[in-house]
Simulated scan of single mutants.
Amino acid sequence: MKCALVTGGSRGIGRAICLKLASETSYHILINCQSNTAAAEEVAAEIKGMGKTAEILQFNVSDAADTSAALTQWQESNPEAVVEVIVNNAGIARDGLFMWMSSDDWNNVINTSLNGFYNVTSFFMQKMLRNKYGRIVNMVSVSGVKGTAGQVNYSAAKGGVVAATKALAQEVAKRNITVNAVAPGFIRTDMTGELNEAELIKMIPANRFGEAEEIADLVSFLVSRKAGYITGEVININGGIYS
């Protein structure tokens, strides 16, 4: 059984990626969520409605022990299963000016995006190297590439993942493992629901927010066999706001 794991897969971009990979690949989809199991169940049901397979893995990516325990238990229960694709999508935002930023808001954002990347990817790395095949896609952000005022913590977390992507890609390329990052701009999801869309689209050359499905299309390509010579890249998908 060949599997694709999507962290933060119950809502928004993660949900769109789970559905797209289910429809366009033969992978068994592993939907990670931290607490919103009801939403994850809906995604799994939708995938099963396509005639494909999926299951939910509940763990907190920012907690190394929780992540290791959940993944170990799953691997022991599925000894024949091989995770070929990892989409590190889980992330949180705690926006605010740096001068007033609490250490909790700093640490929680860094732990989820940056340490979450480490906790999940490191669990599977040796197995991928032995199998001589893998596709790792890290969801970053325009904030991690250009920096965004009011998001010093989020920019730092995503910028760290950008650098990690470039470094890891060089370590594992010989084993047919690609590591890429996708950097969305303003995408219409729950996370951007509070933003003033009418005001912000004035900054976007494409004159609109992106859709989660458009991100999922790019991820689906990057995890495919067609993208075998693309690695260490950060692909901006932002309607021209920054590239």
Rank of each mutant, 00 (worst) to 15 (best):
C3L: 05
L5E: 05
G8M: 05
G14P: 00
G14A: 01
A16M: 04
S23A: 15
L30G: 11
N32A: 08
T37D: 06
E42H: 15
V43A: 12
K48W: 14
G49L: 11
G51S: 09
T53A: 11
E55Y: 03
E55N: 00
L57F: 08
V61R: 07
D63Q: 04
A64Y: 15
T67P: 03
T67C: 10
A69M: 05
Q75K: 13
E76R: 10
E76V: 07
P79Y: 08
P79W: 09
V85H: 13
N89G: 11
N89P: 09
A90N: 02
D105W: 02
W106V: 05
W106A: 01
N107Y: 15
V109E: 13
I110F: 02
L114C: 08
Y118Q: 04
N119Y: 05
T121Y: 01
M125Q: 12
Q126P: 06
M128Q: 03
M128H: 00
M128G: 11
K132E: 10
Y133C: 10
G134Y: 06
R135P: 06
R135T: 10
R135L: 01
I136R: 00
V145N: 01
G147K: 02
G147I: 05
T148F: 08
A149G: 15
G150N: 10
V152S: 11
N153T: 09
A156P: 06
A156S: 07
A156K: 12
A156I: 05
K158F: 02
K158H: 01
G159L: 04
A169R: 07
A173M: 11
A173C: 12
N176P: 04
I177Q: 01
I177S: 00
A181T: 02
F186Q: 14
I187M: 03
R188D: 14
T192G: 05
G193L: 01
G193E: 09
G193N: 01
E197R: 02
A198Q: 14
L200H: 11
L200N: 13
L200Q: 09
N207L: 11
N207A: 14
R208F: 07
A212G: 06
D217W: 11
L222R: 00
K226I: 03
I230C: 04
I230D: 04
T231A: 07
E233Q: 06
V234C: 08
I235G: 13
I235M: 02
I237W: 07
S243G: 08
S243Q: 09
